[in-house]
């Protein structure tokens, strides 16, 4: 083979190798399919509060990762539970959140997440009872948190008992399964994109519990797109 031919082959193989490495890296880093943003702004009257309902489940029960822990969101139009964790919200608006917690839990890695912050009144309710701080070393512990770092919102979701006989095994979960209903309100503030996430390392089987569902959009985190 001529020198030119050998050089061309070497360069070609090098480019193929680079492309394969780049493709592998992108596939590894890709956070997952974004199901889009559920819109809470359609028909919204300025100043009126917005109601958002979510549920957190121990395992989603279907899809590519049926054993993964996940959040779901109730479509405000159809009332159906959807596996989608991102939403479009109006700016400077009070959001009334209701999260139905179906998962068990335990002590927090960092108890700082046991304190409710950034909500209106810096408190939340669990089954109608107000709380500001929850000792995660007691009771059923904390299952997950709903936290929006950019808005300083952080709410611990008090877990259900892991010994309960009616633990939900597949989403969407219903009222017959063991659950806690957590409510709180916060204000969206200025337009922008805010990420939210769970701060409980609940990615079972992954490094420090923060891989898998903790690192995949539409499971334990998402975005709040706040628009004017």
């Amino acid at each position: 083979m001529s020198l030119t031919g050998r050089l061309s082959t070497a360069v070609g193989l090098f480019l193929v190798a680079v492309a394969l490495i780049a493709w592998s890296l992108m596939a590894f880093l890709r956070p997952g399919t974004d199901g889009g943003y559920t819109d809470y702004t359609a028909g919204h009257v300025a100043g009126a509060p917005v109601n958002v309902t979510m549920q957190s489940v121990g395992q989603i029960g279907s899809g590519a990762h049926p054993t993964w822990v996940s959040y779901l969101q109730k479509n405000p139009t159809t009332g159906q539970w959807i596996h989608d964790t991102s939403m479009t919200l109006p700016a400077d608006t009070v959001i009334h959140m209701t999260i139905v917690q179906y998962d068990s839990g335990g002590p927090l890695r960092n108890q700082v997440w046991g304190q409710v912050t950034g909500t209106i009144g810096n408190d939340a309710t669990v089954n109608g009872k107000t709380y500001r701080v929850y000792d995660s070393n007691t009771g059923n512990g904390i299952g997950h948190t709903f936290a929006v770092p950019g808005l300083d919102v952080s709410v611990p979701l008090i877990a259900v008992s892991g010994q309960a006989t009616n633990i939900c095994s597949a989403a969407p979960c219903g009222a017959s399964s063991a659950h806690n209903t957590i409510t709180f309100s916060f204000r969206t503030g200025a337009p922008g994109s805010y990420n939210w996430q769970c701060f409980v390392p609940c990615g079972l089987g992954y490094l420090y519990g923060n891989g898998g569902p903790m690192s995949t959009i539409n499971y334990m985190g998402g975005f709040l797109k706040v628009v004017a």
């Binding site: 002590p107 890695r109 960092n110 108890q111 070393n137 512990g141 609940c202 990615g203 490094l207 519990g209």
Partner: peptide
């Protein structure tokens, strides 16, 4: 030491352990 909660895939293996 955060080894009680989630490290090495072990999720809350012992509720009596100090969280960190």
């Amino acid at each position: 030491v955060p080894d009680a909660n989630g490290a090495s895939g072990g999720y809350y293996p012992d509720g009596t352990l100090t969280p960190y």
